[in-house]
């Protein structure tokens, strides 16, 4: 069985992983952080990332009328790397989110997505 900390260790084992975080979508809080990200304040970064996801959800809900929007994961590619956000629907609170930043050159997106899926199914029933 995986705990939240072990889950983060598993996520960081994905090839090309630069840093990872577990976020609480409802409160915008960083639940667990892997290593110190250089020059980035984890708290404000967590709040900003959840805000990004909320904006995306709102946007999608408006563009898909007549549908309840459920986001599985979200991928943003910048010139420096890939940012992968995976939402885990838990029974308790607003979704738990695995955030993973991947190296542009050394990562395999398909593999990373697949591994994130496997990890999240191990984490929750």
């Amino acid at each position: 069985m995986l705990g939240l900390d072990d889950c983060l260790t598993e996520v960081m084992a994905i090839p090309g992983a630069l840093d990872a975080m577990l976020l609480d979508q409802t409160s915008g809080m960083a639940v667990a952080i892997s290593g110190p990200p250089q020059g980035v304040d984890a708290e404000s970064s967590a709040a900003a990332l959840t805000e990004t996801l909320r904006a995306t959800m709102d946007g999608l809900a408006r563009s898909c009328p007549g549908e309840t929007v459920r986001i599985d994961d979200m991928l943003v590619t910048t010139d420096k790397g890939h940012h992968l956000l995976r939402m885990l629907e838990t029974v308790f609170e607003g979704p738990l989110i695995i955030y993973l930043r991947l190296d542009l050159e050394r990562s395999n997106l398909a593999l990373a997505r697949y591994r994130l899926q496997a990890i999240s199914s191990q984490l929750l029933t």
């Binding site: 069985m1 995986l2 939240l4 889950c7 609480d24 409160s27 639940v31 308790f92 609170e93 029933t125």
Partner: peptide
């Protein structure tokens, strides 16, 4: 129980905060 370790930790975390 029907609760995994990850879920219980997340639940406790949320409740305590």
């Amino acid at each position: 129980g029907p609760v995994t370790l990850g879920e219980l930790q997340y639940c406790v975390l949320g409740a305590v905060l």
